[in-house]
Design a protein around this nucleic acid. Sequence first.
DNA 1: GTCTATACGAAGATAGAC
DNA 2: GTCTATCTTCGTATAGAC
Lengths: 201, 201
Amino acid sequence: MTTVLESATLGLVTPDTRSDTRRRMIHGAARAIGTRGVGAMSLRDLAKEAGVPLGSTYHHFPGGKAQLAEEAVTSTGRRVAKLVESAREQGIDGAIAAFTRVWRELLVETDFRTGCPVLAVATGDDPELTETARGIFASWQDLMVAGLVDGGVPAERAPGLARMIVASLEGAVAVSRAERSLEPLDQVSAELITLVQAARS
Amino acid sequence: MTTVLESATLGLVTPDTRSDTRRRMIHGAARAIGTRGVGAMSLRDLAKEAGVPLGSTYHHFPGGKAQLAEEAVTSTGRRVAKLVESAREQGIDGAIAAFTRVWRELLVETDFRTGCPVLAVATGDDPELTETARGIFASWQDLMVAGLVDGGVPAERAPGLARMIVASLEGAVAVSRAERSLEPLDQVSAELITLVQAARS
DNA sequence: GTCTATACGAAGATAGAC
DNA sequence: GTCTATCTTCGTATAGAC
């Protein structure tokens, strides 16, 4: 059984999801952040959705809202990184496609109401969360760099292209939300494939 | 002198800035939205920064927070559109450079604390503001389409490229904020120039 | 017409009953 | 250990004094 002490002392070292409640709250928090941003995310709503009293939030997350937001964003970062990493077997095009698919499915699932929670905290004003976002963007870019180099893109062009891939798809998710259409995301994804293709030769 | 009646009846038709106070509050609102998002924007803070009592906010903006946010975002949209439109004399590269420069200067001015307010409302959960963001993105994309076609890009490729330009630079501003560096924005801008160049031939 | 004072609700967080 | 009830703060909005 998870104790308060364990959560408090091991939380940052092993930010896994030890209980169903924790898992549900982290998932709900990621959704809420992607939908409304951290500021407008309400712990009351999250607790209600997870079916637990508000007070329990502070049992599972002694650090309160800050800890929950942090874990929600890092959890999303790791999950997406794993999907992209797996798809690297199909080359850089596969990695781009996998990254695109994550956001595509999120947009469809939520009827364009929810976007990337990492972008949300990157555009917020909490310095700690901004730093977390930086690290996650960096990890995604590193995966793309590896894929690009494997795919025959010159090493000196790879970092710029990797930034382009992450930044443009993050922006495309936002534009797709505004337009309530998958077209922006799909078009950007297609443009990226041609851009990478051109960089190969 | 501006009356409440005029503001209420003409607000949406002629959303100009009739007084210094209005101007200052709209400017402050745009900054706050770009920094923290609409939800975390406080009318108290805005009034304090503008040097007016909180109550005066509702004299100048009878529609309250919603009206102020709406005017702040549309004001930014028009201002940026004008800058891009002017730069189209220097071709599509000039338009991309102008769009890049707007956000570059904002990031430097605010030490990476403030991004594009249009992206902020596009990633928020207010449907009215999301629709406003859609219209502004569309206006920017239309300008890019015109520039691309003028620059010799085939008409059928122009819309996709225009979306790519707007989406990738919007995303790049967010990544630049997270990294506290202009490198992402500048690299994306450079990649866009090469992408457009390739599309010309 | 301008601004002070306040109403009212919702937020995060916590104390303490069980 | 879990959850109820509450504390404090801060948000938007407004009523009414001047």
